[in-house]
Amino acid sequence: MSAKTVLPAVAMTAVSMVLTLAVVVMWLGTAMPWPVAVVVGLGIDGGWLATLAYERRLAAQGDHNRVVTGVGWFFGLVATGVLVAHALTAEHSAGAWLAVAWLPVAAKALWLVHGLWEQTALTPVALDAIRGIQQEARDEAAVARARLRSEAATEETRLAAVTAAGARVARVQAKTAATLAGAWSTLETARQGEDTGRALTSVTSRVTPGVTPRWELPVWGPTAPVTGFSLESAPALTDDALDALVDEIRHSETPALSYREMAIRFRAAGHSASEVRLRAAWKRVA
């Protein structure tokens, strides 16, 4: 998998190094001996390769050094500057030379991309585990969606059935109410008719002489007479009984209770007496 990112970087680096060396020899060979120009070109390429090798070593150790990275970019920019300067001063094919002047920077960028890929690379086992987890999550989501849709369809069917049943009940109730209303109206009309009394007289015997029987409308539902409840007043306490009761409540605790506490307990026990009588009894026993 690493070959997908490292091979383009290696190829771009080799092309840019050869191109840089050739341009330096061609450009500076006219101004100095060509061996010196070769040394200059190899120096640029050598510095570029040395910093690249050190960067790769640090990356393999999981480390990073900004100084080394800066030096590497410096050599890459120097090589690019040499190519750009040669293209601008060339008498022929200046555009072609300028078109390939970006190769050193491109090679450096490809090595940067390869380093980022290595930092996030995973083993096949980890990738298989991730794919399995993702597939399991997708399966669970699909099952949950299917369950929700099924429950929604079931609830919709249930609500439709309940609504239809309620509508049928409402129609039956309305029809029954209309029938009962018609029957009640018929009974009321017959009751208020002029010939009702004579008809009842002809088929029933009079209970009270001189009184025409009357047809009363029926009452629906059971009825029961309601009887009233009469409250029986409790007999009033005599003075002696009141005195004894007050004295008993007063001395129910030690020390003796105050009048207010005694009165509260007196009434809480269900006894009744006016405030005047209760206070008079208190004074008599105190």
Results as ranks from 00 to 15, higher is better:
Leu180Ser: 10
Thr186Tyr: 08
Thr223Pro: 00
Asp240Trp: 06
Ala174Pro: 09
Glu216Tyr: 02
Glu216Trp: 02
Glu248Trp: 02
Thr186Arg: 14
Gly197Trp: 01
Pro225His: 07
Ala234Gln: 12
Gly197Thr: 02
Leu187Thr: 07
Ala224Gln: 12
Leu180Ile: 03
Val211Asn: 09
Pro222Ile: 05
Leu200Ala: 06
Gly221Val: 00
Glu194Phe: 00
Asp195Phe: 00
Gly182Ala: 15
Glu188Phe: 01
Gln192Tyr: 00
Glu253Asp: 09
Ser233Met: 11
Thr227His: 14
Pro235Met: 01
Ala244Val: 11
Thr176Tyr: 05
Asp239Arg: 15
Pro209Thr: 13
Lys175Asn: 06
His251Pro: 00
Pro209Phe: 12
Asp240His: 13
Ala174Val: 03
Ala224His: 07
Pro218Lys: 07
Gln173Val: 01
Gly210Met: 08
Trp184Ala: 12
Thr227Trp: 12
Thr176Phe: 01
Glu248Asp: 14
Ala234Asn: 05
Asp195Cys: 00
Val203Lys: 04
Ser185Met: 07
Glu232Ala: 11
His251Phe: 10
Ser205His: 12
Thr179Val: 04
Ala190Leu: 08
Val226Thr: 12
Arg206Thr: 14
Ala236Asn: 06
Leu180Asp: 04
Glu253Trp: 02
Pro218Thr: 09
Glu248Thr: 15
Gly210His: 05
Thr189Ala: 15
Ala177Ser: 10
Ala236Met: 06
Leu242Tyr: 02
Ala174Met: 06
Asp239Thr: 14
Gly210Asp: 05
Ile249Pro: 14
Leu242Ile: 05
Thr196Leu: 11
Gly193Arg: 08
Ser185Gln: 11
Gly221Gln: 01
Val246Gly: 12
Glu248Phe: 01
Ala234Arg: 13
Thr227Ala: 15
Arg250Asp: 02
Leu237Tyr: 08
Ser185Pro: 00
Trp184Glu: 09
Gly228Glu: 13
Thr204Leu: 14
Ala236Lys: 09
Thr196Ala: 15
Arg191Lys: 14
Glu248Met: 06
Arg206Ala: 15
Arg198Cys: 03
Ile249Thr: 04
Val246Pro: 13
Gln173Cys: 02
Glu248Gln: 10
Val246Met: 07
Leu237Met: 14
Leu231Glu: 09
Arg206Asn: 07
Glu253Cys: 03
Ala234Met: 09
Arg250Val: 10
Ala236Cys: 03
Ala177Val: 03
Pro222Trp: 06
Trp215Glu: 04
Val246Arg: 11
Asp195Ala: 04
Ala234His: 08
Phe229Asn: 07
